[in-house]
Design a protein around this nucleic acid. Structure first.
Lengths: 228, 228, 228, 228
DNA sequence: AATGAATGAGAGTTCATTCAT
DNA sequence: GATGAATGAACTCTCATTCAT
């Protein structure tokens, strides 16, 4: 890591707290400049980052490559993200966020915990199968960053795990799942199993369609294992 | 079990005849491969690497830091390992190797597949709980080296997964396990679950003893889930 | 990971030729003191390289020293030259190129081959006497880069020798020179003799003006030797 | 140049005085055990050095490679030569010495200066054709070392040039050669021409036998050019 | 806001040299 | 004398980040 500027921990949330004092004759000052027209660029940068990170890994990717893929200048990246590290964190949070929202919407319509848990598994693997680049970023790239980043990204990730754990709790309360196991343990183990399977797939060692079959088998084992 | 402490009597590794490239025909030209001074430098470097990598991550660790921790000069590292990457690979393989040997010995004495699978889980988490630094290297650090990920299914690691899969096969043949799941999928999912749990623990979010409890719960769920 | 694209070098245009000396719109008076930092970085680096290479030799010169002498950052060197080696190559080719252009212009006005050959000798030694550092780079330093030696007959240098050989051919055809000697041999031997003389001079063993006298004597001998 | 210890000559300048050994207070005790039994080893090292220097160049050759080629340990080199630089200087001096002795013996039997000069040319090119490795060292490698080395080796080299110049003087005094040229200039130009031709040949761009033809042509031109 | 040329602190790695055996 | 494992200073090249335009 070169010139590691401001360490990530100090920044609680919004990445864009850059100097807002000098607004030279541009559009009206916006409380959230990044969301105006910049929102477009921000998203373009994130999309480009997914692509190149997936291809070359985090440490193997130069910021200039992300910039080029996004069609912006190198310096522009730093108008939206404080550092390369933060770019990865933002990417991770943004994508996990969407996954979480999508998942919650899907689960709401399902009758009981077993169905929901099965859907969780299908969703996670299905998403990955649909977006291989994103799969790589989430399963592989995020681990290449420093421990600090991982911890910084943990809250958002924790929310995802919590959602799974919540399904387990619901199942336990409804009498569908055994109560002698920790919901969070189940959530984490499930995630780990899925992640491991996805990693194998993402690295190209499994054929298309394998994820769907794997999802079914994993769900079968897990749901039976959770019977009271 | 034999001497479990740091005792590598198996292969008296010679100090890496770099760029020797001599044709692999004939005995080693060096009649005195024995150490002349100092102790086992290679092992000392590996031990130091575990410590420092666990603390700062792979990319965050300078080779000079490993050297310093090992009490050798920077250049000495390169007498035993071709590069920083290879140091990590060697570390990984060396440790997984030991785990595999140990595991095979343990499993041989157990009566059936369910007992073996439970033992596998206990062993992996138990090892990690005993060596937190090693846990971190195996679960976290190893993924920070892109080259390594490419060889993720490297012989050593593949052998470990195969060993687990073999237990599943044995259980299926003996009628203890259901046969509608892929042994390798189970092996990989199990590893992923264990890895994920260990990762959580290694990152400091779980207290001591948690791994043992986790192992039991995970084994309970998994074994029930595998019932025919 | 190599900077594959977007390399400023190879383009005769300078990266920053805009902010030259006169502002196209605005008062010429500059509130800021003449920065004079702008300008031709590539040429400044080459000029600095001549100086430093001549002083310390190729292997004895650190890239940072060239950068310092050129008044740029270390990294800037690599914006214009791919490597230290290429810096030397570029230096060589650039200078030989200029010499060649100059020489061709000079020779065009001369009546016959003997006059031209004499002029070639005067030019080469004259140039070197005027730029002692350059003399050293061309005669001494250039041979310190093994890769360069492999390309010793590189286009530029080959073109220079060819130009000399062409004069010999012209002389032979016109009956001014004997025909029982190879033009290329004469060209090479002439260059070698000049180079050797310049080397002696560059190493400080000859006084000022000696090169001019040497040129005349060498020309006298060579021209008489070439008589039919 | 790494850790350049004890530079060969006592240089008033301090271009490379880093890590300056701080003048050993004790007596010089210049260890030159070379003439004991080591004479054999010394020669073996020199012979090996010719070979590997010719193959890889001076800077491209590791001391350990010379040691290996000589069949001695790395450290042994330093029992016979103070440094890698001094090894090259010694090599140069030793070989030029032999060439000089041989040449003087050959010239003694020849009748006049023209015959001697022709023989000089034949000898130098002939020697090189017979020992291509040595040719490379003398023509190529010696130039890759620092200026310091070149100056240090100059005296010995000067003796060789002096011998050639002496032939010219003899010819001038006997009325065979014109007197309006400097003998040393002729000597140096001759050497340079020969060297340049040999360099071309050594680099593999000329076929076998070419040197002999080149020698004849060069001698023809030179001798005619020197006629009174 | 956007640009991209310029920056410069490093880090991995090499290898001449040393010295305990 | 001989050895060769160990040393560690030095050096090239990279690339995240900055800032003048």
């Amino acid at each position: 890591m070169r010139r590691t500027a401001a360490s990530p921990p100090a920044t609680p949330t919004k990445p864009n707290s850059r100097r807002a004092e000098s607004a030279p004759s541009g559009p009206p000052a916006n409380p959230k400049p990044a969301r105006t027209r910049g929102g477009d660029k921000r998203e373009r940068i994130l999309a480009a980052a997914v692509k190149v990170f997936a291809k070359s890994g985090f440490h193997g990717t130069r910021v200039s490559e992300v910039a080029k893929a996004a069609g912006v200048a190198d310096g522009t990246i730093y108008l939206y993200f404080r550092s390369k590290d933060e770019l990865l964190v933002s990417l991770f949070e943004d994508r996990v966020d969407k996954l979480l929202v999508h998942m919650n919407a899907e689960l709401a319509n399902l009758p009981d915990a077993p169905a929901k848990l099965r859907r969780v598994i299908e969703l996670q693997l299905g998403l990955l199968e649909g977006e291989r680049d994103l799969a790589e970023v989430i399963t592989v790239i995020i681990r290449q960053s420093s421990k600090l980043i991982k911890e910084y990204a943990a809250p958002k990730f924790g929310a995802y795990l919590d959602a799974i754990a919540q399904v387990v709790v619901e199942g336990q309360n409804a009498g569908h799942f055994r109560k002698d196991v920790s919901p969070h343990l189940v959530a984490r183990a499930t995630y780990g199993a899925l992640d491991s399977i996805a990693l194998l797939w993402a690295l190209g060692r499994a054929e298309q369609g394998a994820l769907v079959r794997s999802a079914k088998q994993l769900a079968d084992v897990l749901l039976r294992g959770l019977l009271p």
